[in-house]
Design a protein around this nucleic acid. Structure first.
Length: 817
RNA sequence: GCCGGGAUGGUGGAACUGGUAGACACAAGGGACUUAAAAUCCCUCGGCAGCAAUGCUGUACGGGUUCGACUCCCGUUCCCGGUACCA
């Protein structure tokens, strides 16, 4: 056995041992309390990057700590294996996507194993396997039965020469990425899932997510975008049709002086028919970006349509304008405009000389409506029978009036749209639907699931090869038995990643999507860790899907919870030279090189030490070496175990034991509150430094030293498990470090007889005194006065006030005598 | 614009609930060992003044509260993330 720290050897040895001992498996037959630690599963791109390494080292530290704490830990991993990159790679390499995907998985699996991550590999999943996606097909047919899945026309990016739909990222500057042809918008029938039916619950349950970063909760809240108000029907002069709008300020209804509609609104389109100038304007509007960056600087423009709307209460006629800032995609594509009480309407009215009618005034005082809009709540004026009401009451009264007169109603509006799950792509789960001439859209019955995706097809970049695959396409209708065709679209890959956390609880289950008992044991996820880029879409869909599974009766609220993730940690990005690592910038760092040079433990240590988990991590090669040096320093502590010349020194022993137990306290705190591993590792470094400086003299000195090194080895295990195990073995510890119990704090060791107290005069630090730990204020003051360097500040002064903060400081407030 | 987060040495970052600012590390400089290099070890390391003891000053900026403020309050600037011109 070498006496040097040989990372490669040690890591190979322990990985083998752990594997043989099966210590990483989560047990389904166990009384211990369970803990579910989940990291966001990777897309099998072929190579692990630093972001993965960081994510998985964080998760592994948590999982290992919990195991050492005696929990039965579920720490699974798998592959989010469907998606576009596989198709692109398939085109490039002329190999089917399945082949590429599976070989990438093999490669990345071995990279993960090389890092020594403690996954339960028996639960590994790959979403592209029929055993997995059959269950989301099954779920989809349940949703069809419930009316929660439906078909509707939706706009897609279409490339005519390629005869295919393009994802947004395949549209580069408005042209197709492959053939440079301008992309056109086309309406296709697509499948949707009614996430909007769950908008209210998804919003309300955000309050339960106390273990989530507020930032993410806020982002989801904005995304759902609830606003309450009223829907109001305006008449259209000379027409039987109505112009319906949504407003959050029904109290300002009497102040409407014009209406504004989107360019795509039917009324605008109709007006343009015999108004060429307007037609040009509409065309212009249709081409502007709706992205916020452009919008910020965009000039607000409008044009009158010539139509007039009839005010539902006063019957007054107001002009209908087209405005470039009204969006067809939100609400009804039309708004009422109240320039007196809305800034944007105010600016618009000013620009085009439209009337401004004040109908609200501040509760106290007046408002100069000529100079600015009054957007606060207030008291109604110029509003006929509603005069004198406060805004809140007026909202109610006006909604009531509208309801009674059939001109509108109370209404809640969400920004959230239904989830479009159809993708006109090959490498995804088939949508389990059969199109029959007579029966329409028929769900594939359970006994015919899964609908297996043929894996031998070769994508070309044009239409999905499923279109050409006759044996897939042609089938018979499950209802009437006549010839029919399969749905050729596949699911959005968010469909797979929305429920994988629950599948892990019974990953090999062939009877059901999940097992209620297993959910009861493991769900919900105690700690979920991943990138903040998933703050909205993935995390929202997963929350939604969890509720769908619950409502499909797969588990109850008690068994699986209403929310899938109790605690969420969003880790920061890994940067190099201040920017995100990316191949195109050429600033990537290959984890493989670090592992080869220094070992997996050094790679793990550095990623955890260099920054707090939620912050960005600036990669620093020199810092990596620093981590390696630390491990070598700890290693050398072994050489001094038997050094025991000289006599026992009680004070020194007490001192070192205090450091040991204070460190246990600090490191434990990091695991229990917020995962500040950078600080925990710093504390371990301090302990190592203290042990290095300590001379283990005599029996008790030697024992204290050993206690320290053992505690250090044990606490290092979640971070650098191979190293810790080897150290523990060489120390002759009974259990290998990764399953050893977490060290307990010996409170007695923390107690000090004498403490150092900082002394302040007027709040400025002037010195320190050593004093009995339970000394009172008078004693402390006396000690301070006995110290010349402190007392010189008190000389000739009158003591006004003395503040003693026990264990910390003494502050003396004085004034000249 | 709005919502969220942030600003601490040359750098990454510490500082519990208002109680010794700069832990731990990186970089830099100096020294020891060595034929030499690597490795390792020791010392210095916010700024200003000083040989030193020490003093003053310092947590983006301006105020305030307090015996005491990186921490709390008011205002300002800048940076990052999110976003919806959302009626």
């Amino acid at each position: 056995m070498s006496d040097r720290y040989e990372a490669q050897q040690i890591e190979a040895k322990w990985q083998q041992k752990w594997d043989a001992a099966g210590i990483d498996a989560a047990r389904d037959d166990d009384d211990r309390e369970s803990y579910y630690c989940l990291v966001m599963f990777p897309y099998p791109s072929g190579n692990l990057h630093m972001g993965h390494v960081r994510n998985y080292c964080l998760g592994d530290a948590v999982a290992r700590y919990k195991r050492m704490r005696g929990f039965n830990v579920l720490h699974p991993i798998g592959w989010d294996a469907f998606g576009l990159p596989a198709e692109n790679a398939a085109i490039k390499h002329h190999r089917p996507p399945a082949e590429w995907t599976y070989s990438n998985i093999d490669q990345m699996r071995s990279q993960l194993k090389r890092l020594g991550l403690s996954y339960d590999w028996s639960r590994e999943i790959a979403t592209c396997r029929p055993e997995y996606y059959r269950w989301e097909q099954w779920m989809f047919t349940r949703l069809m039965e419930k009316g929660l899945a439906y078909q509707a026309e939706a706009e897609v990016n279409w490339c005519d020469p390629c005869h295919t739909v393009l994802a947004n990222e395949q549209v580069v500057d408005g042209v197709c990425w492959r053939c440079d042809t301008p992309v056109i918008k086309k309406n296709l029938k697509q499948w949707f899932i009614r996430i909007t039916d769950y908008a209210e619950e998804l919003l309300a349950d955000l309050d339960k997510l106390t273990g989530w970063p507020e930032k993410v909760v806020g982002m989801q809240r904005n995304w759902i975008g609830k606003s309450s108000g009223a829907e109001v029907s305006f008449g259209i002069e000379g027409s039987d049709e109505t112009l319906d709008i949504f407003t959050t300020r029904p109290d300002t209804l009497m102040g409407v002086t014009y209406m504004a509609v989107a360019a795509a609104h039917p009324l605008a389109q109709k007006a343009a028919e015999n108004n060429p100038e307007l037609a040009v304007f509409l065309d212009e509007c249709s081409r502007i970006s709706t992205k916020e960056a452009d919008v910020e600087t965009m000039e607000k423009k409008g044009m009158a349509t010539g139509f007039h709307a009839i005010h539902p209460i006063s019957g007054e006629l107001v002009p209908v304008w087209v405005a470039n800032f009204v969006l067809m995609g939100y609400g009804t594509g039309a708004v009422m405009s109240v320039p007196a009480h809305d800034e944007r309407d105010f600016d618009f009215a000013r620009k085009y000389g439209l009337r401004i009618q004040q109908v609200i005034k501040p509760a106290d005082g007046d408002w100069d409506i000529e100079s600015a809009a009054f957007t606060e709540a207030g008291i109604l004026i110029n509003s006929a029978q509603f005069d004198g009401l406060a805004s809140a009451d007026a909202k109610q009264a006006i909604i009531e009036w509208l309801s009674e007169n059939d001109k509108g109603s109370e209404r809640v509006q969400y920004r959230l749209r239904d989830w479009l799950v159809s993708r006109q792509r090959y490498w995804g789960s088939p949508i389990p639907v059969i199109h029959c001439q007579d029966c329409g859209e028929v769900a594939v019955p359970d006994d015919q699931l899964p609908v297996i995706l043929p894996t031998h097809l070769q994508p070309t970049g044009g239409a999905s090869p499923l279109n050409e695959c006759d044996e897939f396409r042609h089938t018979t209708c499950p209802k009437c038995g006549k010839a029919a065709e399969r749905e050729l679209d596949t699911f959005d890959t968010f469909m797979e990643s929305s429920w994988y956390m629950n599948r892990y609880t019974s990953a090999r289950n062939e009877q059901a999507m999940v097992d209620a008992e297993a959910m009861n044991r493991w769900a919900a996820v105690d700690q979920y860790i991943g990138g903040v880029e998933h703050a909205v879409l993935h995390l929202l869909y997963a929350r939604f899907y969890h509720k769908l599974m619950r409502d499909a009766g797969l588990f109850t609220s008690e068994q699986g919870g209403d929310e899938p993730f109790k605690n969420l940690l969003t880790q920061g990005m890994v940067l190099k030279d201040g920017t995100k690592m990316s191949k195109s910038k050429g600033n990537t760092v290959d984890p493989k090189a670090i592992i080869e040079n220094f070992g997996a433990d050094t790679a793990r240590l550095f990623t955890l030490f260099a920054a707090p988990p939620e912050k960005e991590l600036e990669w620093n090669d020199a810092g990596v070496e620093g981590g390696f040096r630390f491990l070598k320093r700890v290693w050398r502590l072994l050489e001094r175990l038997d050094l025991c010349e000289g006599e026992d020194e009680a004070a020194a022993v007490k001192q070192v034991r205090r450091t040991i137990h204070a460190t246990i306290q600090r490191v434990t705190h990091a695991f229990e509150h917020g995962f500040a591993f950078n600080v925990a590792i710093a504390a371990l470094m301090e302990l190592a430094n203290a042990l290095q400086d300590y001379k283990p003299a005599g029996t008790s000195g030697k024992a204290a030293y050993r206690e320290g090194v053992e505690a250090l080895a044990t606490m290092l295990a979640p971070f650098v498990p191979h190293f810790a195990c080897e150290l523990a073995e060489r120390l002759g510890m009974a259990e290998i470090a990764v399953v050893a119990g977490w060290p307990e704090v010996d409170e007695a060791a923390l107690v000090q007889d004498e403490i150092t107290l900082a002394v302040q005069i007027q709040g400025k630090r002037r010195g320190e005194i050593i004093i009995a730990k339970d000394a009172g204020q008078d004693e402390a003051l006396a000690a301070a006065q006995a110290d010349d360097s402190i007392n010189k500040w008190l000389d000739g002064m009158q003591i006004v006030k003395v503040i003693l903060v026990p264990g910390r400081l003494l502050n003396v407030v004085v004034k000249p005598q």
